[in-house]
Simulated scan of single mutants.
Amino acid sequence: MVNEAVCKRRQCNLSVQGGDVETFRIRSVSGGTGLRIDFCGDHRAPGFPDLARLLAAGLGATCAPTSAPAAQAMMASDRYVGAWSYAGGCYEIDDDVWACVIHAPDGSDRVVADIERVLVPSGRFVRDDAPG
């Protein structure tokens, strides 16, 4: 099993210094159930907030171990998915070359609201409610 540090290694460009305020949108999952949070900026740019660390601290979340074959497949495809859980539920941070998305499949309204309550007060994120 790969430990939590590997889970956090590439989650949404784990930079921690400075940067502009980033925008996110909350949407329904296409063809599925639940909600997702889409990050609108360049999630791999220097200065993009460290989502994994921010949410781990704010929610008390922990990352589930990833098997070595799964970690190798993620590295080969330049896609990193971390399954996180906390007292209020679970969510996944899905980071690939095109986007960074947080998906909360179970109890998503509550989980997404909890995540928003961490993101916005951090001063690094604002919610965009514009359609589209």
Rank of each mutant, 00 (worst) to 15 (best):
C7M: 06
G32H: 05
A99F: 07
G32V: 07
C7L: 02
A83E: 15
E116I: 13
C90N: 13
L55W: 10
R117I: 01
C100L: 01
R9H: 02
T23I: 06
R110N: 09
S30G: 06
L54E: 00
I26L: 07
I102H: 04
R110M: 01
C12E: 06
K8N: 15
P49D: 00
H43L: 11
H43C: 10
S15T: 12
G32R: 07
I37K: 07
D42G: 08
P69Y: 11
L51P: 04
P65A: 15
T33V: 12
G19R: 12
D109E: 11
C63A: 15
S30H: 02
L35E: 13
D78P: 04
V21I: 15
T33K: 14
G18T: 04
P46V: 04
S122I: 07
G89T: 04
G82V: 00
R10Y: 05
L55Q: 06
V120K: 03
G123C: 10
Y80S: 01
G19D: 06
D20V: 05
S15I: 05
S122N: 02
N13D: 14
R27L: 14
I93K: 00
N3E: 14
R44G: 13
V126S: 14
R25L: 10
V2Y: 11
A83Y: 02
A71H: 11
R10I: 03
E4T: 09
E22L: 08
D95C: 05
G32C: 09
A56N: 09
V111S: 07
C7Q: 05
D106R: 12
C100T: 07
L54Y: 00
R36P: 10
G132N: 01
G88L: 01
E22W: 05
P121W: 08
Y80P: 00
A5F: 02
A99M: 02
A70R: 11
V81M: 15
